[in-house]
Design a protein around this nucleic acid. Structure first.
Lengths: 110, 110
DNA sequence: GCTTACCGTAAGCGTACACTTACGGTAAAT
DNA sequence: ATTTACCGTAAGTGTACGCTTACGGTAAGC
């Protein structure tokens, strides 16, 4: 689908994000990717499928092997959403600071 | 925890992301947030707890109500990760384009 | 004091999902 | 042609998680 929702869902899982980062460093076949991770090769294959459907990676055949590489355009929607959100959030935060301006200390953290 | 992992996990769920966007627009009590969503109030409360532990929102008491507002600093780590990744990804992509330069068309999409 | 409003949490449930093993299919090697 | 290497998918399993209803606790209103 390659929208922001699927990208966010794909990158939420730590293992899958590790796969993504590995592929981002340099294109590699599935076996090589799986070798650096604590999961089986089919698991990596499934993760790559999700990443591919999210528009985050591209694949092409190389003999019996299948090379995966990153598709940086897949990060576009997510980055755009975050950027638009960044300004909006800062505006709201600043406005809220002006409005209250004094009760900024009574928020309880864990 | 307020790290990138928890932020990514928190924003992955569509309902919780809707809660986050609602809070980002303007601070609001739990009941008001729940009113604009197709889930119950306790569900919103649980989502807010996750968002709070991820460092994405702040809360403060206002009588019997509890006002939630965004914490834009929570998006920092995620944005930093994405930025660092953005350049890295583009570099790898460009390098790969130079290396292959001709088999850019044999990637199969769904 | 009693009632009403607002909220967090516990308990329980159904489902999505990350992982494994097993299998089949294609491509290179001998 | 047979074997070996590499990979995707199907089937099954355990668990995390998003949601609901039920409950208890605090703050304002009468």
């Amino acid at each position: 689908m390659a929208n922001m929702n699927s990208a966010l869902l794909a990158l939420a899982d730590p293992t899958r994000r590790a796969v993504f980062e590995r592929v981002a460093r340099s294109p590699a076949p599935v076996g090589d990717i799986a070798m650096g991770l604590p999961v089986s090769r089919p698991a990596v294959s499934q993760h790559l499928k999700v990443l591919k459907e999210a528009g985050l990676v591209l694949d092409h055949a190389d003999g019996a092997r299948r090379i995966y590489r990153i598709d940086p355009r897949g990060l576009g929607p997510l980055r755009a959403w975050l950027d638009q959100f960044w300004g909006e959030a800062l505006d709201a935060f600043a406005a809220d600071l002006e409005a209250h301006a004094k009760d900024d200390k009574d928020d309880d953290h864990d």
